[in-house]
Nucleic acid binder design. Sequence first.
DNA 1: CGCATTTGACCGGCGC
DNA 2: GCGCCGGTCAAATGCG
Length: 390
Amino acid sequence: MEKKIKEDHHQEQQREELNSTKNTETTTSTHMMNLVTSSDHHHHQMELAGNNMNLSTIFDTPISSPFPYSYFSDHSSNNPNSFLYLLRQDQPQFASSSNSSSFSFDAFHLQNNTNHFFTDLPTSQPITKAESSEVVSTTPTSPNSTSFSSSFNEAANENINKEVTVKDQEDGDQHEPKGTKPQMKAKKKQQKKAREARFAFLTKSDIDNLDDGYRWRKYGQKAVKNSPYPRSYYRCTIVGCGVKKRVERSSDNPSIVMTTYEGQHTHPFPMTPRGHIGMLTSPILDLGATTASSSSSFSIPQPRYLLSQHHQPYSSMYNKNSLSMINRSSSSDGTFVNPGSSSFHGFAYEMSQASTSTTTIRDHGLLQDILPSQIRSDTINTRTNEEDKI
DNA sequence: CGCATTTGACCGGCGC
DNA sequence: GCGCCGGTCAAATGCG
């Protein structure tokens, strides 16, 4: 026990030391991501500048981007956060497979009944891919670079049970008096059975707990095996909302924060003093937030990083990424037009000392849980080779 | 005082 | 069965 305390203390020290130096870091390069959309709604492709590989070369079957092309268009061009706004609206659309213009995760039909989605980053960028039944994408929604991945662990098969799952959480979990131990066991077993879909963000940030607009209550912290950085556990503070969030820092690249969301908010995006983007809450969102019967109860974490006052130099980053979104190419009808040589600034993947930072993620904790073993091993090998040279 | 965070204890799953 | 590990609980503590 004493040893453990020392260990944790050591970790904390390391972390503090790290944070104290990290803020002096300057961003040296920015990688832009070009989005390529085909005219066929069902074959949206995402492509990154400097990397010609697109999704159809990755997947055996034509797939759709989780974000309809329209999501990348700036419907409200005066809203620099429109992508986030759209993301926030996504839930019901993601859930709908009948809407031809919206993406459906049901569109993924890959071997082994797995759902994969990821976008390539420029060659110097990491290629993250999700574990079986997970979705990984990279959308730098933060002033710092951010990628996200969504875990569909069992989610695809559990969609049917989703409503029950959410309800179960609302009924019990943390908001009702504890039952007897056997009852709790049974309940936990049920919960275990129907695991929530997870959605993970890789974010380059000095801040562990990214402000995504929701209010979170920390309920635990654990040391992560093979990582000097602890993992923090948060729960949405809204009564009845069982959404959880785990935050951990990559041991290999401490500037990378992995935030994993689990579950679906059962309430509209809050209008909190913290989150003025809450004003953007739309009826669609409300629908999504309250419709537990959607075929895919996948929960978009709805990041609000662009507005995060906790984040790094807001002004510079904001100018670089979000504001520039306003100026990117889009057609008059709001559909996104491949900007060609111009970069899709909204997806600028900002990497400080970029080239290898996230490619070398070798995390045996949550990251391991999210990233597929193959990719992990690839990146690990990369790292290992590098290390071997030393 | 109310709420959030901290942190040791506890529990279940899993591998050996 | 035992130990390890991830996840959660809940009392203590901190903070505005």
